[in-house]
Simulated scan of single mutants.
Amino acid sequence: MKLGLSSYSLFSALQSKEINILEAIQWIADQGGEHIEMVPMGFSLDDDPDLIHAIRQRAENAGIEISNYAISANFITSTNEEYENEIERVKKQVDIANLLGVKLMRHDVASRPVNETSIEQFEEDLPSIVYACRQVADYAATFGITTSVENHGYFIQASDRVRTVINHVDRTNFKTTLDIGNFMCVDEDSVSAVKKNISLASMIHIKDFYLRPSYNNPGEGWFPTTAGNYLRGAIVGHGDIDMREIVKIIKQSGYDGYVSVEFEGLEECKKGSKISMDNLRRLWEEA
């Protein structure tokens, strides 16, 4: 297991300009992180080869790897022209991943409003999703890059839907970025879902959530699941996910790749990220 941090965890500091992405790389290394996952929020790599080069150099100097490049995407569009344009846009993001020197890239595949996320709608959209993912994966294969779908965005978030997309795309370099917490957004138990999908993971995100039932709306800082329950980001090990069991499942599966902490709690982001990384390291050693 290679423990690191998603740059998304430091989004508030990046957005406020408290730190920049190069300083974030050094900060992660100083906390004992072995890699950084690049999520272009609070900064952009589009049309900026100088920044890409600087990121690679800073990571090398800091002695950590760049593990994964994660971007947003949505292949559900109003017109065929928009659909083709989105495929081409994501391919250009593959070019950025290649310039970063990474061999893993996560791209979202589809998003719909919660009231349009039925299984019937998923089945109707599946052919378009599969075709687009194949186009991107085949292009990424020319660089030796494995692309992945994350359980993310309500529509493609349940473990069975992720498995279905991967099985239909049917490319050896198309897998899943397995986020242990995101299953809860569609009211799926994280332990059961991780067991289902761990064999398909090219990358793992470790995050934690507090969970409250639908009849107990805690107010500001919480967001609803598809069934109307409530979630709030937590420091890893502080929330309601059975983190010890999750870590045990991952470790016993034989997974030995990158594990990226994603902190999105209300605490100050550097403090929350550091405690999360320390807790995960301890839990891994104890598993």
Rank of each mutant, 00 (worst) to 15 (best):
S6T: 09
K17F: 08
E18T: 14
I21D: 02
W27P: 00
G42N: 06
L45D: 12
L45Y: 12
I55K: 01
Q57Y: 04
Q57W: 05
E65T: 10
A70Y: 02
F75S: 05
S78R: 09
T79Y: 08
N80D: 14
K92T: 07
L99P: 02
G101L: 00
V102L: 01
K103I: 00
A110H: 11
S111V: 11
R112C: 07
P113M: 07
P113S: 07
V114S: 10
E116Y: 07
F122T: 11
D125R: 07
I129W: 03
Y139W: 08
T147Q: 10
T164P: 07
H168D: 14
V169S: 05
V169I: 10
T176Y: 02
T176D: 01
D179K: 01
A193M: 07
A193S: 15
V194C: 10
K196V: 04
S202F: 03
Y210I: 07
Y215N: 15
G221D: 06
W222D: 07
N229R: 14
Y230A: 09
G233I: 06
H238C: 13
I241V: 13
K251Y: 12
G254Y: 04
D256Y: 01
G257V: 08
Y258F: 15
G265K: 00
E267R: 05
E268D: 15
E268Q: 14
C269T: 15
C269M: 12
S273K: 03
I275S: 04
M277N: 05
L280C: 06
R281P: 03
